[in-house]
Simulated scan of single mutants.
Amino acid sequence: MIDIINEIARARREVSDGAEVKTIVVRRRYDAALEEVWDACTDAERIGRWFLPISGDLRLGGHFQLEGNAGGEILHCEPPHALKVTWVMGDAPGLSEVEVRLTAEDGDATLFELRHTAQVPPEMWSHYGPGAVGIGWDLTVLGLGLHLAGGTISDPDAWQHSDEARRFMAASGQAWGEAFQAAGVPPEQVATVVENTIAFYIPQPSEEE
């Protein structure tokens, strides 16, 4: 059983609502040494245990592919502090980059920061807002935290459809709504995009079901 409220509260979220380029940031402190977090984020075998199977040339300038998800090019690598990649889903055009920065903290802990910058179609942003990708990154941050703590979700596919996962995604959607409002977006617009995003991740059962 995951302490959903605690997991959501342990992360801090920011949104930059630029005219053409949007940026979301999620930060979380892990009770693990800097080198341990870096290894978990860059070793192919370990990535497959908490995120998704990954293939490709995992070196500066190389290309990677996450199974059933994004792929891209490794733009910058500064062990054990910084990693920057392009983040492309299929043939989607425009800028999309993900940067991870790690900072050692007192008590053998590490501050993890993930920044996703992208050109987002206006109609998608106005309908879903930052939660469209933010919920996915919250799930990623959760998976990394469980891995670093020595735990795991035994059946991720089944868990995605569990009541626990639905509660987590709903809480994540609300948290990204709060970050969106803090960026200066009117509350009425925030409420609409949060509702749309949560409905996308957690569709209501049809009457036939």
Rank of each mutant, 00 (worst) to 15 (best):
L75A: 05
R101A: 08
Q189S: 12
I2D: 03
D17R: 13
R166T: 05
E14M: 12
E207V: 11
F168W: 12
H63G: 13
P122E: 11
F168H: 12
D57P: 04
A182W: 03
N196I: 06
V194L: 05
P122L: 14
D43Y: 00
D163A: 14
I198S: 03
V98G: 02
T140C: 14
L102P: 00
G90P: 08
V88S: 11
L148R: 01
G107K: 13
I2M: 09
A11Q: 13
D91S: 14
G145T: 00
I202G: 04
E164V: 10
V133Y: 01
Q204W: 03
E207Y: 10
H161Q: 15
T86S: 14
A92I: 09
L58M: 15
W125K: 13
G56M: 15
A44L: 03
S96D: 06
G62E: 12
H147L: 01
P79T: 04
A104C: 09
T86Y: 09
T117W: 07
I74N: 02
R46V: 01
D155A: 07
E123P: 02
T86A: 09
Y30H: 04
L114Q: 08
W87L: 06
L146V: 06
R46P: 00
A158Q: 11
I54D: 00
V133G: 06
G184P: 04
R46L: 13
L34H: 05
